[in-house]
C-alpha cells in the first residue's frame, strides 16, 4: 500500500487526544498497516481545530488535511465536536472558493477503540489524495491527471 518516497504526499492530520489519537494508537498496537503519508498533530479536542489551521496548511504546502474527533455525543468535553462539525462543514463549502478541491479536506469521527476504522480512514483518504495528485506540484515530480 505504501507509495514511493518521492511521490509521498503531504497530508496533515489533526487528531483529538481522547478518541482519534487513541484510535490511531489502537491501530498501531494492532499493527494495522497504513500508508505513510499522514503526519499527525495532536490537539485536545476537534473543537480546538481552527478552520484557519486547515486553510493555512493547504495554502502553505499540504496536499490534504484530515481532522478526526470523537463520535458525536461521545465528546470528552461534552460538545466540542459539535462545534467542530459546524465549523468544518462550513470550511468544506468554503474551500472551492479558495480554489481548493474540497475533497482534499476530510473530517470524520474515530473512537479510541476503532483501530480498524482508523486504518480504513487513513487508507481511503490517502488513496483519494493520490488520485487527486499533489496540490503543490514539486519540481521533478510528475503531476497526476485530475
Amino acid at each position: 500500500m505504501s507509495v514511493v518516497a518521492d511521490k509521498e504526499l503531504r497530508i496533515v492530520g489533526f487528531l483529538c487526544n481522547w478518541c482519534s489519537y487513541g484510535g490511531a494508537d489502537t491501530a498501531g498496537v494492532a499493527r494495522f498497516k497504513q500508508p505513510t503519508d499522514l503526519r499527525i498533530i495532536r490537539v485536545p479536542c476537534s473543537g480546538r481545530v481552527n478552520p484557519l489551521f486547515v486553510v493555512k496548511a493547504l495554502l502553505s504546502g499540504a496536499d490534504g488535511v484530515l481532522v478526526s474527533g470523537c463520535h458525536p455525543r461521545d465528546c470528552h468535553y461534552s460538545d466540542g465536536n459539535y462545534y467542530a462539525r459546524r465549523r468544518l462543514e462550513n470550511l468544506k463549502r468554503l474551500l472551492p472558493f479558495l480554489g481548493i478541491d474540497e475533497r482534499r479536506f476530510h473530517y470524520t469521527w474515530v473512537s479510541a477503540s476503532e483501530g480498524a476504522r482508523w486504518q480504513q480512514v487513513v487508507t481511503d483518504f490517502t488513496r483519494r489524495l493520490h488520485e487527486l495528485g499533489p496540490l503543490h506540484p514539486k519540481p521533478g515530480v510528475a503531476q497526476a491527471v485530475e
Binding site: 490537539v43 485536545p44 479536542c45 473543537g47 480546538r48 481545530v49 481552527n50 470528552h76 468535553y77 466540542g80 462545534y83 465549523r87
Partner: peptide, 9 residues
C-alpha cells in the same frame, strides 16, 4: 477542562 473550543471561537 482544557478543550480549547473558546480559543477557536
Amino acid at each position: 477542562a482544557g478543550c480549547g473550543v473558546c480559543n477557536t471561537t
